[in-house]
Each structure stands twice: as structure tokens, then as C-alpha cells.
């Protein structure tokens, strides 16, 4: 893999919460155009990895490079402006803003009215249900609708890299499949994706390459078809003996 093809590169990242050593030297690479997944049990450090890349949590040491530029410990608004968007854990819809305003918050840094309009049409195509609910307050949407809105809101910044933290969590099985389909669709339109999931099966079937995280360390990585065949992965994450 040559350097130019890399969208994101994380090198030996260490993160602490007070005395808790949450990330113990994480390294990972996200090539341009790929879907990369990060799986692991509760408390493994998946969310911390994403929030540190986004600039919400400070790294103690290590390096994060985005499109060849060092973005380690840059403030979150700078990181977003450079082209990284996130679907945060738990959706984090603005409950007191309408669906339309939530989407416009996603486009906060943009000034190209026409482009914003185009992207609105695009997310309505992905999630037609949102269009019917534009004037409804975000807090009154159902969990599934909130997840669609969280994904759409992130897309409204027209990101180069989309980070998603457990987008399938708490959704009905049918909707889970829909979300993974949408992820593929978004990727097909050219957006690179870093996907964090508890649903290892869904994630590994959707992504091209995967990392397995355990208590702050990457213990396994490889192309997803290999990980799906891996005995340890099968036992620990796919629920098959």
C-alpha cells in the first residue's frame, strides 16, 4: 500500500482517562475508498479510538495522520472541517432541534448552498422517511429514525472519511440489514468508512479489512473474509464454536 492511497493512519496511539490506560498503542490504516471495521468487546476502546481521531479526546502519545497531514490533538471543529465526520455512539441527535436543523448542523461548515441542497436530496434518497419528518423535533423520533438522522447529519458535511460508532445498535433486525446496506451504498459513492461495531458478523461482511481490539490493544487484523474464517474470531465474536 503506497502512502498516497492512505486516507487515515494511526500510529502507536496512547490515550488515558485519568489513571485508566484506555488505548495502549493502537496502530491502524484506512486506505482511500475502503470500509475498515474495528470490532471488540465492551470497553475495548473502540469509541475512544474514534473520539481521539475526532479530537474530542486528547492523545497522550502517538500520531494521527489524515490525508498526509498530522491531525493529532487538533480541535474537533478543525478535524471536521478537514473532512472527517462521525456518527457518534448513541446517535446524539440534537433533541430540541428539528430534523431539518439537525441536518443543517451537519452542514455547518459549508457555504455552498447548491451542494447542500444536492446532499439533502441524496440523504432523502437513502432515507425517504426523514423527508416526511423535517419539521419534527429530533428528540421525538424513534430510535431507528434517529440513527438514520445521525448518519444523514454526518453525510451533510460531505466527508472524505465517515466514522460510525455502532450504527446498528438497538435496531430491529430488518433495519440492521438496511443500515449495513446503506453503509455499502455510501461507500460506493466514494466515501471512505471507518466502522465500529458490536455486531461483528454484520461488520465483517460489510467491510474490506478489520481490526480486533481487546482492552486497548489490537490483537488481530486482516482482510474480513479471513477474519470470518478465524477460529478465535468465530468463538469470541461470532458466537459459533
Amino acid at each position: 500500500m503506497s502512502r498516497e492511497e492512505l486516507m487515515l493512519e494511526v500510529e502507536d496511539l496512547h490515550v488515558y482517562y485519568g489513571a485508566i490506560h484506555a488505548l495502549k498503542g493502537i496502530s491502524l490504516k484506512v486506505p482511500k475508498g475502503a470500509i475498515i471495521t474495528l470490532i471488540g468487546a465492551n470497553g475495548a476502546g473502540k469509541t475512544t479510538t474514534l473520539t481521539t481521531i475526532a479530537g474530542l479526546v486528547k492523545a497522550r502519545s502517538g500520531r494521527i495522520k489524515f490525508m498526509g497531514e498530522d491531525i493529532t490533538n487538533k480541535p474537533p471543529h478543525t478535524v471536521t472541517q478537514m473532512g472527517i465526520a462521525m456518527v457518534p455512539e448513541g446517535r446524539r441527535i440534537f433533541p430540541n432541534l428539528t430534523v431539518y436543523e439537525n441536518l443543517m448542523m451537519g452542514a455547518y461548515t459549508r457555504k455552498d448552498r447548491e451542494g447542500i441542497q444536492e446532499d439533502l436530496e441524496w440523504v432523502f434518497q437513502l432515507f425517504p422517511r426523514l423527508k416526511e419528518r423535517l419539521t419534527q423535533l429530533g428528540g421525538t423520533l424513534s430510535g431507528g429514525e434517529q440513527q438514520m438522522l445521525a448518519i444523514s447529519r454526518a453525510l451533510m458535511s460531505r466527508p472524505k472519511l465517515l466514522m460510525m460508532d455502532e450504527p446498528s445498535l438497538g435496531l430491529a433486525p430488518l433495519l440492521v440489514m438496511e443500515v449495513f446496506d446503506v453503509i455499502k451504498k455510501i461507500n460506493g459513492e466514494g466515501t471512505t468508512i471507518l466502522l465500529v461495531e458490536q455486531n461483528a458478523m454484520g461488520a465483517l461482511k460489510t467491510a474490506h479489512y478489520g481490526y480486533v481490539l481487546e482492552t486497548g490493544k489490537i490483537v488481530l487484523e486482516g482482510p474480513t473474509d479471513e477474519l470470518l474464517q478465524n477460529e478465535e474470531v468465530k468463538k469470541a465474536y461470532l458466537g459459533v464454536a
Binding site: 474537533p76 471543529h77 472541517q81 465526520a85 457518534p88 440534537f94 432541534l97 436543523e101 461548515t109 458535511s157
Partner: peptide, 20 residues
Amino acid sequence: MAMRAIATDIPTTALMGANI
């Protein structure tokens, strides 16, 4: 709109690219 957003969630508003 950003003022109303940060009144409920500062970090997520920052994730939208707004300078808190």
C-alpha cells in the same frame, strides 16, 4: 441554531465543525 445545539450537547456540536 448552534447556540440551541450546544445548550444540549457541546461535544456533538463540536463534531459538526462548529467552533465552540
